[in-house]
Simulated assay, not measured.
Amino acid sequence: MLKFVKNYMDSISGIEVYPIISLLIFFTFFVVLFCWVFTAKKEYIKTVSNLPLDNQNNDIL
């Protein structure tokens, strides 16, 4: 089975670029998330973190 997959992947031209693109997307996402975490306002983080505990906004229950 592995031999079939290896031969099949070798027959696709330009396939070596896909792992590089996926790694770049993954790395970029976490770098942007890291920057957002350190630049987010503390008031916003406190407000969002208290949302599950706030009984005034639980109209569903």
Rank of each mutant, 00 (worst) to 15 (best):
G14P: 04
I20H: 11
V37N: 11
D10A: 11
V17N: 08
Y44F: 07
V37I: 14
P19H: 02
L53S: 15
K46S: 12
M1S: 09
N55H: 12
S22L: 14
N55W: 08
L53N: 15
K3A: 13
I12T: 01
I60W: 11
I15S: 09
E16M: 13
K46H: 12
C35M: 04
A40Q: 07
S22M: 14
S49H: 09
N58F: 03
V48K: 08
D59K: 08
L51S: 08
T47M: 11
Q56K: 14
I20R: 09
N57H: 07
N50L: 05
D59N: 13
P52C: 03
T28L: 02
L23R: 00
I45G: 04
E43G: 10
L33I: 03
L61S: 09
I21M: 02
V37K: 08
I15Q: 04
W36Y: 10
S13G: 13
K46I: 06
Y18C: 10
C35E: 03
K42R: 14
Y8P: 05
F27R: 01
S49Q: 14
L24G: 15
C35F: 01
K46N: 13
G14A: 01
D10G: 10
E16P: 06
I60E: 15
I15C: 03
D10T: 07
S22E: 13
F34G: 06
N58R: 06
E16G: 15
F34S: 07
I21H: 01
V17Y: 04
V32C: 12
L53H: 08
C35G: 06
S13R: 12
F26V: 05
M1L: 06
F26E: 11
K46E: 15
I25A: 01
I15T: 02
I25L: 01
K6Y: 09
D54G: 04
N57A: 07
G14N: 01
L33P: 03
V17W: 05
I45Q: 08
Y44W: 06
L23Y: 00
Y18G: 08
V17F: 05
Q56G: 12
N58L: 05
N58Y: 02
V48G: 09
E16W: 12
Y44K: 03
F27C: 10
F30N: 12
K6E: 13
K6H: 08
T39M: 14
M9T: 12
G14Q: 00
K6V: 13
N58T: 04
F38W: 09
V48Y: 06
I12L: 07
Q56V: 14
I60L: 15
L23W: 00
D10K: 10
L2H: 11
M9E: 09
F38L: 12
S11W: 00
N7T: 05
N7Q: 07
G14S: 01
S13E: 14
F27V: 08
L53P: 03
I60S: 15
D54K: 00
K42C: 07
K42S: 15
L53M: 10
P52A: 02
N57T: 11
E16A: 15
K46R: 10
T39Q: 13
V31N: 00
V48C: 07
N58S: 10
V37G: 11
N50Y: 02
I20L: 13
N58P: 04
F4Y: 12
L61A: 06
L61H: 04
F26D: 12
S11Y: 00
V31R: 00
L53E: 14
L23T: 00
Q56F: 12
E43N: 09
F27T: 07
Y8D: 13
